[in-house]
Every structure is written in C-alpha cells, then in structure tokens.
Computed example of a mutant assay.
Amino acid sequence: MLNVLIAGASRGIGLGLVRAYLGRGDRVFALARDPAASAGLAEILGRYGRRLQLIACDLNAAAAPEQVVATVGDCHLDRVLLNAGIPGPHKQDVASVSDADVAQLFLTNAVAPLRLARALRPLVRSGGVLTFTSSVMGSLQLSVGASMPLYSASKAALNSLLLHWAAELGSSRDFSLLALHPGWVRTDMGGDQAPLSVEQSVAGLVDVIEAAAGLDQCRFVDYEGNALPW
C-alpha cells in the first residue's frame, strides 16, 4: 500500500487521482481549500473511510507547507501529486491585467506548489515520485499557448522552478520529479469541448507516474508518457 498525497483534490483531475489511487488500495492524503464542500470527496470518504484523510488547506497561505507537514506527521510518502492550479484572468492581456491577478496566478500555479514540494521533500521515500500538473502550454519551444499567454507563462515558470530545484538537489535526489501535461480534459477549466474525460487522463497519468518510480528521473511528459520539450 502506497502513501499518496494529492493537492487540489476537490474536483476534476485531482479528484480523479484520489479515486484512482484509493481504487488501487493505497492510502491518500487529499488536500483542498474546503474539502467539506466537495460532494465527490464526501462520497469517496464514505466508501474508503480510514484510507482517505482530508486536509483543509489554502496552499497559497504562507503557513500551508508547515500545516501539511504537521498533518502528515511521520508518515513517509511514496507519491506526492501537486495538482492545484487556476486559469487566471479571463482577459489575458498583459497591458490591462491587474497586479493582483498576476500575483495570484503565479503564486497558485508556480510558487505555492514548489514551496510545498520543498517542505515535503524530507518525507518522500527513496524511489518515490513527486509530480506537478503542468501544461503543454508551458513549453517555451512549442509555444502553443498564444490564446492564454499569462496562464502559459505561469506554467513555464512552474517548469523553470522545478528544473532549478532538480539542479539544486543534484545527486542527493533519490526520487523522480515530473512535470505532467494531463491533456485537454473535460473539467471546469478544460470545458465541455475537450476530447478527454477525467478518467482517460487520470488512467494515463497514473501509468506514467508509476512507471517513474525508482528511476530518479526529472522529465516533462504528457499523460501518455511522451516527452515534451521544456
């Protein structure tokens, strides 16, 4: 049985990952700003009980890493899946976007996930996997995010921070680091026209995550395991 921590667990891909890992027989710590407001988490809690621990936490709060580490306690983690993110302002125009919107976007999508990951690093088992939900839009080489430039920039920032952290860890890192593109998925963010269901994306993500266990990789890949250029 693996110990799995999943952030952004109240809906969409995060909730799908909670379902998938509990379905495999694993133990899950599910982080959400307000778990009690998630009907999906309530249903899962009723089914799996003690193998699911809900953690109410605003990951953007400065004290969030300390709170999560204290809640997890001395439990060592096999998988850490940091999935929380926001699309940013509807009008993604750098000339008119407010400072507050930019700060919120980059804090949520790039800074807060790395801050939590660094705090959890001592709890990650050797051979484990720590992942961040990124996006193909974050690839500077592919440059496919023209319709959402600020969102794309926030994911590029996430990828950059991940690479810098991997370099900082160097040979001391004994777990895999993955930036994951989940595909275009039918969620609140992806919309109804997206070609992938949550279940399809999550099934692929779990396969990719589990394939990285024990390999100490640092990669940017999609839900089918295809490498993406940074």
Rank of each mutant, 00 (worst) to 15 (best):
L123R: 15
D207Q: 14
W184H: 08
L130P: 10
I6A: 03
S176H: 01
P87A: 01
S154T: 08
I6Q: 04
A84G: 09
G12I: 00
A64T: 13
S126M: 00
R51L: 10
A117M: 05
G128R: 04
G214Q: 02
Y21S: 08
D222G: 06
W230L: 14
L123A: 15
T131K: 05
G190D: 01
P195M: 07
V221R: 07
V208S: 03
E43Y: 08
Y223R: 10
R121D: 15
A9I: 09
L45K: 15
S160V: 09
L59H: 11
F132G: 09
G8C: 06
L120Q: 11
E199P: 06
V185K: 02
Q92G: 07
D74N: 13
R173G: 03
L5E: 09
V4M: 04
R11F: 03
T187Y: 02
E66Y: 09
C57W: 10
S172Y: 03
G138F: 04
S197D: 09
A36N: 12
V72P: 14
D222F: 01
I13P: 01
P149A: 04
E199T: 13
L142N: 12
R186T: 00
L105W: 08
P87W: 00
L150R: 03
L52V: 09
A61E: 15
E168M: 06
G14R: 01
W230K: 08
P122C: 08
L205N: 07
S135Q: 02
P87F: 00
H164K: 13
D207W: 05
G170S: 13
P89W: 02
S10D: 10
D74P: 03
Q193N: 15
D74C: 11
S154V: 04
S201G: 07
L41C: 12
L105C: 08
H164T: 13
Y151R: 02
S143E: 09
L162S: 04
V111D: 06
E199W: 08
G191H: 00
Y48Q: 09
C75N: 09
A95N: 11
S176M: 04
V94K: 02
E224F: 05
H90T: 14
F175W: 10
C75G: 06
F132C: 07
S152Y: 02
A166T: 11
E199C: 06
M137Y: 12
A36K: 15
A112F: 10
T71E: 14
S134L: 00
V124C: 13
D174E: 12
L228I: 05
S38M: 14
G214W: 00
S139T: 01
I55E: 13
V69S: 13
D58F: 10
G16M: 11
G183N: 01
L31G: 14
Y223A: 09
P182Y: 00
W184E: 00
I86A: 00
D216K: 11
S38C: 11
N60V: 08
S134I: 01
A153P: 04
E168N: 09
V144H: 02
T131V: 13
S147P: 00
M1I: 07
L123I: 03
V208Q: 06
G191T: 01
D188M: 04
R24L: 14
A117R: 11
